[in-house]
């Protein structure tokens, strides 16, 4: 069926299969940052924003994005670069396969809660699995990023 959505700021019309999953649609539309790590909605690698909220694109029918706004990391390159550099400075990106989903969800967290405690960070990102880093380096990167933002008198990430 025909759908129309706003993908990373651009209007996209497409004829999609009823059972097409958003992750596959997004990859077919060049959003290769969106990764599949499981089939059971457990890993968080495929996290994208649907009308600004982080969701698992592996679990969402593409048709349900009709009329909505979808963001992937491709549409948030400025934020990804700014925040991602703090992860990279820790060496915590490691293999990088889980990074886009984690960074998307971290951006979502910063928008909901610009000044999170460590516990809040761990809870918000609990659905983003990573097998390389042991998570500590990611936490250090997030803390360093928040400290940097604070020192500049800015809130974490607010633009959309």
């Amino acid at each position: 069926m025909m759908i129309k959505l706003n993908l990373n700021g651009k209007s996209v019309s497409a004829d999609v299969a009823e059972d097409s999953l958003l992750i596959d649609f997004l990859r077919e539309h060049g959003c290769y940052s969106v990764k599949r790590g499981c089939e059971t909605s457990n890993c968080g690698l495929c996290t994208v924003f649907l009308d600004g909220k982080p969701v698992l694109s592996c679990s969402l029918l593409t048709v349900r994005a009709d009329g909505k706004t979808v963001h992937t990391l491709e549409g948030l390159q400025k934020e990804a670069e700014e925040f991602g550099a703090f992860i990279a400075r820790q060496g915590a990106e490691q293999c990088g396969f889980c990074n886009p989903g984690m960074i998307m969800n971290a951006i979502a967290m910063f928008r909901e809660n610009p000044d999170p405690t460590d516990e809040e960070i761990l809870e918000y990102l609990a659905g983003n699995l990573c097998r390389c880093s042991g998570y500590e380096g990611q936490l250090r990167g997030i803390r360093a990023f928040l400290d940097y933002k604070k020192s500049k008198g800015e809130t974490a990430i607010c633009n959309m």
């Binding site: 909605s41 457990n42 968080g44 996290t47 649907l50 909220k53 982080p54 969701v55 698992l56 679990s59 969402l60 969800n105 979502a108 967290m109 809870e123 918000y124 990102l125 609990a126 659905g127 983003n128």
Partner: peptide, 12 residues
């Protein structure tokens, strides 16, 4: 609810 997989899961 808070233990159920993750925020992205619970948003769906």
């Amino acid at each position: 609810l808070r233990h159920i997989v993750g925020v992205q899961f619970r948003n769906l």
